[in-house]
Simulated scan of single mutants.
Amino acid sequence: MVIHLHRLTPAKVWLGVIPTLWWNDDFINIDIGIPYEQALSEMALAGYVGCGVGHKFPTDPKILRPALELRGLRISEPWVSTYFTIKAMKRHTLDNVDAQLDFLEAMEGGSDDPRRADLVVSEFGRAVNPLPVALFPNCPDFSEDEWKYLIEGLHEAGDKARARKRRLCYHPHLGTGVMKAEAIHRLMDETEPGLVNMLLDTAHQAAAGVDPLALATKYADRIKHVHLKDIRAEVVDEIHHRELSFQQGIEAGIFTVPGDGSIQTFPEILGALAAANFAGWICVEAEQDPAKANPLQYAKMGREYLREVLGW
């Protein structure tokens, strides 16, 4: 495989980090009390230029924007959990999409900086990852009607994002109806490329038994946002063997930063994206318990790994 990593330059690829190193945004009990200001300072200290939105962040852009600018940071993405596959939630979901797009305009208005945030979404209708149940055996499979509602809803959300000159990026996620390989392929096959892009999360895909390199190769042209995250394969095996929940898996250490776990193909994954002239956010992530994994230490580890791979 020819690797074109020289094409991934700081002028077109921006390295961010997701706040789940400092606290967990799904399970708020996984927290040691780190304030958002400390997290932002440590993100900048570790060498990142952007970050996802964490639940501890101020919701008022007049407060958050100066805090980010003080540290040379940008927002890489807000998260929207969609609920298109369950009853009476389409309007609420699209209202949330509008609210997040408004938030981004307030955060970036008046700036000509090309590092614009993407809108990251994932369908959480019937998802089991928030629940205290065995993760893998209970992952939902969507019915034909649910697939219809999901595709229609994503197209409407994607149209809203495109109208605001944003990219909607779909995040296949453990414990949801778009976790398995066949579901990811169906989502890509049935959605309009101009409206629905893919977010490649290397760890969520690898933990689900999906080869992230194969996805990066097949969908390089549609991948517009990346969460670069590693897995500990022995913990994935433990989740299967002991029938653990998603939260238990996180607490057991399923995830870590790239270069510290079991995925060996990060250079090839980045090479596949480079060959497709990828431009956008690549964000280091590791949903870890900060009481067990020092956030700044792991943030620096992830950034140093990318420095070794990319050369900057």
Score class of each variant (00 low, 15 high):
Q205F: 10
C283L: 08
N277P: 06
F255Y: 10
T202L: 14
V235F: 01
F278M: 12
L200M: 14
I254E: 01
G280I: 10
V226D: 10
A279W: 12
Q247G: 14
E243T: 15
N277E: 10
T265N: 02
L273Y: 04
E251D: 12
L244G: 05
A220R: 04
I250R: 01
Q247P: 09
R232V: 00
K229A: 00
I282F: 11
E238F: 04
E243S: 08
L199H: 07
P267F: 11
D211A: 01
V236G: 00
L228K: 05
G249I: 01
Q264I: 08
I239Q: 00
T202M: 05
L273G: 08
V236A: 00
L213V: 07
H240S: 02
L228I: 04
K218E: 14
E251N: 06
A208H: 07
P267W: 03
L213A: 03
Q205W: 11
S245V: 02
I263F: 02
K218R: 11
Q248P: 13
E234P: 00
Q247Y: 05
A216G: 15
L199T: 12
F266E: 03
V226N: 13
R222F: 12
D237T: 00
D237R: 00
A252L: 04
A252I: 15
A279K: 06
S245H: 03
H227S: 12
A252E: 08
A252N: 11
V236L: 00
A220K: 05
I254A: 02
T265D: 01
G280C: 14
I239V: 01
W281D: 15
F266S: 01
L200F: 12
H225S: 09
H227K: 05
C283K: 15
K218F: 04
T217F: 15
I282Q: 09
T265V: 07
G280P: 08
A272M: 13
V235H: 01
Q205G: 15
V226E: 07
A252W: 07
A252C: 05
